[in-house]
Nucleic acid binder design. Structure first.
Lengths: 104, 104
DNA sequence: TCTATATTTAGATAAATTTCTAAATGGCGG
DNA sequence: CCGCCATTTAGAAATTTATCTAAATATAGA
């Protein structure tokens, strides 16, 4: 929940690439690993980091695990970043400010 | 310019705290260090990381150096994050998409 | 129940990062 | 030109992180 974990998770290029892949829809760990030159165990590690940051969710189906984006944390990030821009009005800021805490 | 550096820079809590401080206006390295329990040399290191990511700029005046926010990179970040949210329409996305490259 | 498959966990290593102390730099004012 | 002040740079130590191999777990289906 705190943004601290979010930034930590986003700091790794491989993890951001995984997120980009998931834009096209849910994927299994094996499918993700197949597109990288890293071991499946390593991909599993990155997935656990992303899951810990709640940037992704897992959905179990048969004996597979599908990973998918969790958009809500991206909205928190959006809110955080918008507080640093000059033109804060462009993003719907005020409505959401109250709902979320604003930790670093 | 690539977002890679941005995420790297934002991954450290101390650096994010520095950014928060700079919301209130430009500060000198010494003033920033005075608010932390870390050495000035360490703060200097963090400032150089933030500067490398173009999240801050320095302005020299007399024999001081003032650090201040550079909002443009935050807008890139905003753009990146908005591509992961369901409701992309809320942020003025289309106008800016062409101007920026969209690397990871 | 047994086996095959998908995935994670454990443990180890290598690389990167943060932090410190001490020394160097650079510019103003006298 | 000199010494002072703010700040950075260098180098080293400690911590964290990413990655690998090998082993463990879980589960579907025969």
């Amino acid at each position: 929940m705190p943004l601290k974990e979010t930034f930590k998770a986003l700091s790794d290029p491989a993890r951001r690439e995984i997120l980009e892949m998931l834009k096209d829809g849910p994927m299994r760990a094996g499918d993700i690993a197949a597109r990288f030159s890293m071991r499946q165990a390593t991909v599993s590690y990155h997935l656990s980091q992303l899951k810990g940051a709640e940037l992704i969710r897992e959905r179990r189906e048969k004996n597979y695990i599908y990973y998918e984006l969790n958009t809500s944390v991206f909205e928190e990030l959006l809110l955080w970043a918008s507080a640093f821009t000059a033109d804060q009005g462009e993003y719907a800021l005020e409505e959401k400010k109250g709902e979320l805490h604003h930790e670093t």
